[in-house]
Computed example of a mutant assay.
Amino acid sequence: MTPATARTAPYRKFISSNRAELGLLALIRLLQLASPALPVGAYTYSQGLEWAVESGRIRDEASAGAWIGDVLTGAVGRFEAPLLIGLLAAWSAADAAEVGRLNADFLASRESAELRAETVQMGFSLNRLLADLRDPTLGCVQATLALLPEIAFPTAWAGIAAAWSIEPPAACAAYLWSWAENQVMAALKAVPLGQAAGQRLLAELGTRIPTVVGGAQSLPPAAWSNYTPAYAICNARHETQYSRLFRS
Rank of each mutant, 00 (worst) to 15 (best):
A52Q: 01
M122Q: 13
S55T: 06
P149G: 10
G159I: 13
R247H: 12
S35G: 11
E98G: 10
Y242G: 15
R12E: 13
A97N: 14
L188V: 07
Q121Y: 10
Q241R: 14
T5M: 13
L205A: 02
D95W: 10
A94G: 12
L126H: 03
T8P: 05
S17A: 15
T144F: 07
P221Y: 05
E204T: 10
S63G: 04
Y231M: 03
Q217K: 08
R59D: 03
P154Y: 00
Y43G: 11
A108P: 07
G123K: 02
I68Q: 04
C234T: 03
K189H: 09
I166W: 08
Q142N: 07
W224T: 04
M122A: 04
E114G: 08
A180V: 01
A163Y: 01
S218C: 07
I166E: 08
R12A: 13
P36N: 05
L126V: 05
A26T: 13
R57E: 13
A156N: 03
I166M: 12
R29E: 10
W224S: 02
L148Y: 10
L176P: 03
E61I: 08
A62C: 05
N226G: 15
P229F: 04
F106S: 01
A223W: 07
S55K: 08
L115D: 03
S92P: 03
L31Y: 12
P169W: 03
R7Q: 14
A156P: 04
P192M: 08
A52Y: 01
N103H: 09
G159T: 13
R237Y: 06
N103V: 09
S46R: 00
